[in-house]
Structures are given as C-alpha cells and as structure tokens.
Design a protein around this nucleic acid. Structure first.
Lengths: 237, 237
DNA sequence: ATTATCTATAGATCTATAGATAATGC
DNA sequence: ATTATCTATAGATCTATAGATAATGC
C-alpha cells in the first residue's frame, strides 16, 4: 500500500478536477488505500465505486483506468493480506530445524500477529465478511487461505501432545490456531494498539492449544526470539 | 422465528403464484427466517429484497405488506438476537444473591452461550457486520448492546481480583467478557455443534479473565448448575 | 370487509464503456 | 506519443409505491 510509491510530483495525464495533493501516493495506491478503509468500515457490497472515487477525489469512471472495478480492487487487497503471511510460513517451515517444532510454531504466530497488526486498515477482516466470501474473486484466494491453515496444522501436529491428539483432529487444529492468531484483528478493530506482549500472549496460547507444557512454552519464547533476529538479519541482507 | 406460528392451513388473501407449502409458518416468520439466512450468509447489503422474496416464493413487492423493507426486517432480527440475552441478564442481576458474583457471571455466560447457540441461523453475527453497523436501524440497538456489555462489566468487576483490576479497566472488562462468550458464534459458523462442554469451557474462561482462582471456578460451576435449575423451573411456572 | 397477495412501474442508484481532453515527455 | 484523467451515457439493478385481484370470513 503506502510502499515507497512514485510520489506526487508532476506526472503526465489530464489533471484531476480536484487537484491531487503534492504529497499523494501513486494513484493506484491512493485508490487501494481508500478502498481498503471503506470495504472494512462500511462493507464491500455497501461500498460503491462512486464512494471510492469521491473519497480519492476523482470521477467514478477514472477508477476503471487503474482497476477492473470493485472486484479488481478487492482481489489486490486480498492478495496484500494473505501473501505476506504465506511467504513467512514458507520460510519458517523451510528454515527452522525440525527438532524444535514448538519454537517454530511460536515464531510463526509471533510473525503473523505482527503482519496482521501492521497491514493497512485491518484488511485481515476482509475474508471474514460474507459478501467478500461470496464474491467471484474470493475463490482464487481460498486455496492460499487453506494452505496457510494447513501450514499451521502441520506445525501444530508436530507439537501436539497425547491428550490433545486424542481430542482434536489435525484438520481442526490448523483452524483453531489460525483463529487464535486472528484475535489480533478483533483487538485492532476495538481500537487497541497491538504490542509485543500481545504477540507473546497469542503465541503462547497457540502452544497451549497444542497441549504444550508451560516449561516448553517458556523455552520456545526464548528460542523464537533468537530465530526472529536471524530472520530480520536475512531480510536486510 | 419458528415459534408455534399460525401454521399453513388456509388463510385469507390472494394465493401466491407459487403456492405455499401447507406446513409453512406464518408469512412474517417465513420472511424473517429466509432473510436471516441470507443476511448472515451473503451479507446484508449484498442481499436484495428480490433475493429474499424469491427464496420465500413471493413477489418482491409483497414483502412490503409485512415489513418496512430491508431495514424493517433487519430491525426485527437484531431485536430477536439481543432481547433474549438482555432479559436473562436482568433476571440474573436481580435474583442472584450478591455474595456469589462468580456463580452469577458463570451462569450468565452459560445461559448466553446457549442463547447464541440456538438463535436461528447464527444471527448473532449480524452486529459484527459493518454494513449492519452503519445502517440506520442499528443505532436503535446500540444502547441495548451497550447495556449488555455494561452488565457483563458489572458482574465481572464484582469478581475481579487485585492484579487484574490493576491491568484492565472496568469498561474494558465487559468487552472482553462479551468477546469471550461470542466465540460460540465463530464455532457455530465453523459448522460445529455447540455442546454443554463448550458452555462450561467458555464460562470458565470468563472467570479466568477476571482472575478468579481455579478452586473458585470449580465451585461456581456447581453453584451455577443449581441456579440454572431454579431458573428453568421458574420459567415453566 | 378484510387480508394477503399480485402486476406494473417510476425513480434512484450503480457499473462499465466510449470517446474527448489536458497534461508530460520525447 | 503516452498517460491519466475527464464527460456523457446506456443498461442493469434495486427499492418502494399505486392500484388490481383473489382468497376467506362474517
């Protein structure tokens, strides 16, 4: 979204009837940003292309130069909200030593909480909305969502203790863990700021759901912190 | 909804173009039932009056004989989803001896879970949907929702232990407890059946949120079960 | 007479396309 | 020439009202 987008400056094209601020982001990003806010706060179906255009400060028809209508915008927003989580889960599964699944799960939860906490306008809410789930573009993302849940399930299954394994199936487990992590979405929409403490509490909850004993949770918290540093370094490199 | 509504039989009025089943509920209830399902599963804004009418088996215009359009239907559904909880919280606050707030809170959670579990089509979801929250009729229900949260806050505050009181304000507490209880909505929409065990787990969670010690939770569970029986008896009388 | 439906339709959106226009950049 | 906007508008909904009609019930 507000990545270092080709900023305001003067650019080709007919000027807007309401002049754009010199500080404005690239038009595409302006639209995505406004649409994200409206979709989340008013609902997808309840937001018209006119609403979006008005708030951006352009004419309704001008949207279609940048996007294939509301569905096109939604598709991009959904992508923005799943992709980062998916990339991280792949890295964690690939690079974490298999002998410490607790720490891997803890780390994943920690990172995912952070992603959901920083994604613009709490767009993690989108795939909970029924009008979004019924939209055509959603179908494309369902596999990605399933893959995310499946990854949580795999990591969780490696942690799970006897009594838990007896009660909760592997399929269910992924869902439970994702749910636990998505509490951040709720907390955010309550207006609360997400802190490191939130992340740790949620990550710990994930381990408890798998039936991990408390000592193991404490250990994983430390290990995950180490791993987190390594991850951050690799990012910069 | 499907209360023992004046059933099918023959009734005055021009016949429907698609004849109604002899077993059908009263027309008002047929409409409420269909609308509840569509609002919850497709979204409020995404459902048109035509969609509702079609599924009921009447013409779009005929809806207006029974309701003041979509907002009118929504108003009634919101009422149906808050009213029962509100009535119960009043009774519990009025009749529970003030010296056992733990049991009272436990009982409230237990009863509320049951209400949310049995309300038709999981309509507890409605007031989480942004298009519903922005509708005009929602404003009327916001006070009722606040009252419900406030009641949870009062009961919770009577339970709360020192360390929790230091961290979480009374205002927040109500919200936290309501959130905890509303997990049933999520569980239901995951397709899972709600059991007594769910209710007990959630009620216990509420006490833990208040910082109640485990012995007190176990005791409250027993006491609440007694109270529950008394409540059920009074209902029948 | 009353009730519950119907048919028909006006008026208000809302989406999406066609074609014009005003900038920049070469 | 390319880009990003504009204006204008057709066609598709969608809501809500007016007035007709086909039952039952007295």
């Amino acid at each position: 979204m507000s990545t270092y987008a080709t900023a305001g400056a003067t650019r080709p094209g007919r000027p807007r009837v309401i002049p754009r601020a010199a500080s404005a982001a690239a038009p595409r990003d302006e639209i995505l940003n406004v649409a994200a806010e409206l979709f989340v706060n008013r609902g997808f179906a309840a937001t018209s292309t006119r609403d979006i255009a008005e708030k951006v400060g352009i004419r309704q028809a001008s949207l279609y130069y940048h996007f294939a209508g509301k569905p096109g915008i939604l598709a991009e927003l959904l992508e923005l909200s799943v992709r980062p989580s998916l990339e991280k889960v792949e890295r964690i599964e690939g690079e974490c030593p298999g002998d410490i699944p607790e720490a891997a799960l803890y780390l994943l939860a920690l990172i995912d909480v952070e992603t959901l906490a920083t994604v613009p306008h709490n767009i993690g809410k989108l795939y909970r909305m029924p009008d979004v789930r019924n939209s055509e573009v959603f179908e494309e993302f369902e596999p990605e969502l399933r893959e995310l849940t499946a990854a949580y399930g795999r990591l969780g299954a490696a942690v799970v203790s006897g009594p838990v394994a007896a009660t909760v199936g592997v399929d269910q487990l992924g869902g439970l863990l994702v749910q636990a992590v998505e509490v951040v979405i709720r907390i955010r929409s309550g207006g609360e700021e997400i802190t490191r403490a939130h992340g740790q509490a949620i990550a710990a909850t994930c381990l408890r759901i798998c039936g991990a004993p408390e000592e193991s949770i404490a250990r994983s918290a430390v290990t995950a912190d180490d791993l987190l540093l390594r991850f951050a370094e690799q990012r910069q490199a």
